[in-house]
Design a protein around this nucleic acid. Structure first.
Lengths: 95, 95
DNA sequence: CTATTAGGTTTATAAAATAAACTACTTTAT
DNA sequence: ATAAAGTAGTTTATTTTATAAACCTAATAG
C-alpha cells in the first residue's frame, strides 16, 4: 500500500467517536457516551466490548447506590492506537 | 449526534484511498489505482462501481490499442463529498 | 400488583468488505 | 498452429461488521 493501513478497530464511526470522547474526558459512563455519540444502547454495548477486548479502553462495572453503572476510560495502549490512527488517516485527507 | 456523521461511502479505507488519489492526479487508470492502493482487482472493481454509482467518480472504459483500459476521474460532486468528509472526520481526530 | 423506566446484554438481521473463481482476450514460447 | 501464461477486469461467494430488535434484571411510580 502506498497508503498506510487504518486500524480496523478504530476505523468505525462509533468506536472512533467513543475513543475521541474518552481521550478528552479521561472517564465517562455508559449513558453519557450513549448521549454524546447518539448510539443505541445495543450497538454501544457491542462496540465498547470490542474496544475493551482490544485493550483500548478499560471498562468497570459497579453499582451506584442501587443502579448499575458502567464507566470507561482509555488505556495507554488505546491512546497510542488512536494517535497512530490519526497520523495514518491524515495521509488520506491531504493528498 | 454530537459527532457529525461520516459519509459511509467514503468511510472505507479503499474508497477513501481511491478518492484521495484521484483528487491529486485528476485522472488515473485501473492498473495504476490498483498498484497505488495495493487492492486486489476484484475489490477495486467493486469499490469503483460504488463510487461511480454514487456519482463521486466518472469511469470510462475504452481500448488502448488492443487492451481494455478503464480510466477514472473525480466529479465535482465527489470532490464536495470528499471535502465534507474531511471536515467531519477532523472533528473526531482532534478532541 | 402491574406498568414503566433505567441500564444494559444477547441474539438476529442487514450491509460491507474481501477473496476466490471466472471471463475474455493477448502475447509469448514450442 | 497451438498450448501456456499474462493482462485487465467482472461476478459470485464468503467472511466480517454494523445495526437493530428483542430480551433481561432491578427499581420506581401509579
Amino acid at each position: 500500500m502506498a497508503f498506510r493501513a487504518l486500524d480496523p478497530l478504530l476505523h468505525s464511526q462509533l468506536r472512533l467517536a467513543v475513543m475521541s470522547l474518552l481521550i478528552s474526558v479521561e472517564s465517562a459512563d455508559f449513558v453519557y457516551i450513549k448521549e454524546q455519540t447518539g448510539a443505541t444502547a445495543g450497538n454501544l454495548s457491542v462496540q465498547l466490548d470490542k474496544l475493551s477486548t482490544a485493550g483500548y479502553i478499560e471498562v468497570s462495572k459497579h453499582f451506584e447506590g442501587k443502579k448499575p453503572k458502567t464507566t470507561c476510560k482509555v488505556t495507554p495502549k488505546g491512546l497510542d492506537a488512536f494517535e497512530s490512527y490519526v497520523k495514518s488517516i491524515q495521509q488520506y485527507l491531504k493528498p
